[in-house]
Design a binder for these strands. Sequence first.
DNA 1: TATGAATGAGCCTTCATTCAT
DNA 2: GATGAATGAAGGCTCATTCAT
Lengths: 218, 218, 218, 218
Amino acid sequence: MAVKRNSDKYHQILTAAIKVFAERGFSQSTISQIAQEAGVADGTIYLYFKNKDDILVQFYERMTEHVSIRFWEAVQQGQTALEKLHNLIHAHLELFQKEPNGAIVYQGETHLQWRLVQEPTRQMSKMYRDVISKIVALGQDEGTIRGDLYVGLVKRLINGAVEEVINTWIHTGRDHDLAAMAEPLVELFINGIGTPKGQHDTGNQALQQLVNHCGDMT
Amino acid sequence: MAVKRNSDKYHQILTAAIKVFAERGFSQSTISQIAQEAGVADGTIYLYFKNKDDILVQFYERMTEHVSIRFWEAVQQGQTALEKLHNLIHAHLELFQKEPNGAIVYQGETHLQWRLVQEPTRQMSKMYRDVISKIVALGQDEGTIRGDLYVGLVKRLINGAVEEVINTWIHTGRDHDLAAMAEPLVELFINGIGTPKGQHDTGNQALQQLVNHCGDMT
Amino acid sequence: MAVKRNSDKYHQILTAAIKVFAERGFSQSTISQIAQEAGVADGTIYLYFKNKDDILVQFYERMTEHVSIRFWEAVQQGQTALEKLHNLIHAHLELFQKEPNGAIVYQGETHLQWRLVQEPTRQMSKMYRDVISKIVALGQDEGTIRGDLYVGLVKRLINGAVEEVINTWIHTGRDHDLAAMAEPLVELFINGIGTPKGQHDTGNQALQQLVNHCGDMT
Amino acid sequence: MAVKRNSDKYHQILTAAIKVFAERGFSQSTISQIAQEAGVADGTIYLYFKNKDDILVQFYERMTEHVSIRFWEAVQQGQTALEKLHNLIHAHLELFQKEPNGAIVYQGETHLQWRLVQEPTRQMSKMYRDVISKIVALGQDEGTIRGDLYVGLVKRLINGAVEEVINTWIHTGRDHDLAAMAEPLVELFINGIGTPKGQHDTGNQALQQLVNHCGDMT
DNA sequence: TATGAATGAGCCTTCATTCAT
DNA sequence: GATGAATGAAGGCTCATTCAT
């Protein structure tokens, strides 16, 4: 344990572990498989990690930190709310596209290893919410984003949709360009799937009622 | 195996298993824990299920079938596309709210036990896509849903958002009314988070460009 | 246990058990398999047999008794020692040819289930020795069988050869006529594989010494 | 599995296993018993053997090879057919006397674990037949062994008798000198149990007929 | 008598973890 | 630091046996 967490071996093992976890799932992966993938002896792993769980935990901690930095960075590089939102989603997709193993593990094990990764997951969730919150506020200032939004729900809408896009990508052979989905996604978030409002009189009272009613939430 | 799959014991064991799986994850759950929870002997489980995997598989098969029926039912009970969409999402949320353990297992193990539940998962995904597809087509006929939509993405948007809402509910103690989230969700899907289009001149050219560009997808 | 050991069910089960034992070996056979083969419920077996071991034990007891009777009968139907010997071996081969499952179980499990079948096996061995002993004595009286024989060894010679012939028959698909091997076997027992003694002067002193030396045993 | 098959531990475990198998039979033996007998942990066995079956298989393979070498060696050290036959049988008895556990397992499990040890058993059988075949041919050249023999049957005669002698030895406390049985056995094989042919006129026509008839086989 | 669902002890096997080298 | 043989606890699964019907 006195071994530095930045040595080559450390990263070698962590990378190998994530690859194995991605292929077989955390519980179905064995220390031996990780050791073999990393090209080290089984025992060596215990010089860098407290135990098997610890590998996952350290991955989550690093992933959370890495993602946080990258997301804030992406958001800052946009001027308008819309640009920021686009950059956020693009960064999200790009990151997971570049590190598909990390993506698989991150998205797959989050729910199952809840106990282990509770804390990093909470941080990640909070960070995402803060980012969205900031973008929404800016957009509202700009007049490009509606004022009557429940940010918590918007965060779930965006995060859920993005993760579902990533999941589909993972399970369909990862052949298409994931990052390219950022634009159509943003467009859907902004405009919705309904016909432009105010442009025509829908005459459909029930729909208007439902939509109006739905819009009450703040 | 010669024992009926509709007996009391069968459901007793399946229910117990789902509860245990929800609490500890499939891989961390033991047959003994399930047996204890079900109030039967370990060996009894093997009179109703081929092996541990089979419990999960049978749960998925039943869940898929149940959900399919329920979703189509819900959609049929709506007149307009909007009503149908609302009913679908409400049914989804309500179902998982009523059976939180099933929800946890279903959403949690899908990715990890991919090998085992591949087929049911594919069916479920296809069913969801078909439902969305039908609603979108109807809405386009009605003039309430945009014509320039990529249904695959819409499905991911809606499904992802709904599942994220469920996940959040699961991980926050399940205290609020999950089904009540249907209306605000639908409203977001329909109207998006942007300000009503055409009502004001945004003056922000970059945004318009981005949004316009995004809108190209068909 | 109060159930008669001569009812139809009893024989039905015993026959089924021997068939299953012959196919899979005693240890690899299950009560369920036997029950299925016999067309009865698992529990029914325990009305006729104390436990699984008891099935084998009762088979051995019956087999031993049956074989004893048959062998003595065969021997009595011969006049000369040679005829008796031939009849014995023919009966042995014929019996096992008619009941190959019994043969397989009898020959296969004898050594392995030694503890269980010790007593019947001892009886069988003793009976065989007695039969051979009687035949040898008669032959010596007749002048057709050598006087300088160690009966214990003769019994092993004959019994071993016959059982090996049966084993080979079992493991080669049981296609040839087993009982027909009686005559050539007897001929070998009587005349040996050496050239007729006294007919030629072997000139090979070492051989004569060895054979003479061997002949010392009484 | 990556562990050498010639290490001390390997032999330690194999020896222990054969001892346990000899005492209780293969099916009734447990890995724990073997581990305890070998003085290792249960898991250690799986570093050297794929599974329980593999222990038996490896034993058979080694036994077959060892026996083959030893038998051919013994045969080569004899000059005449008779000497060779004697050496073969003596080697057989001596080998099994020195390793009684191996003998018990080898003779006992051959039939029952047929599936597992089919191949080694076939090799052993073929080897034995080849050895006998060679000896018989030599003896016929020398004029010491009859010309009208069916080698297959001779092999069964000799092998069966020798194995029966070994079995009896095993089941009678192994107190007498097994190897010493080689000479009387050979003498019986060569001369048979009948009175010397041609020395006296047996007057018993039926016997002569039978024996003559039997002798027809080639 | 007959049934067969239920039981639970016991076994094979895996694998995280340790430690002597 | 690095190794990998050794450990042994734990889990999935089987199956002989029982017993309520």
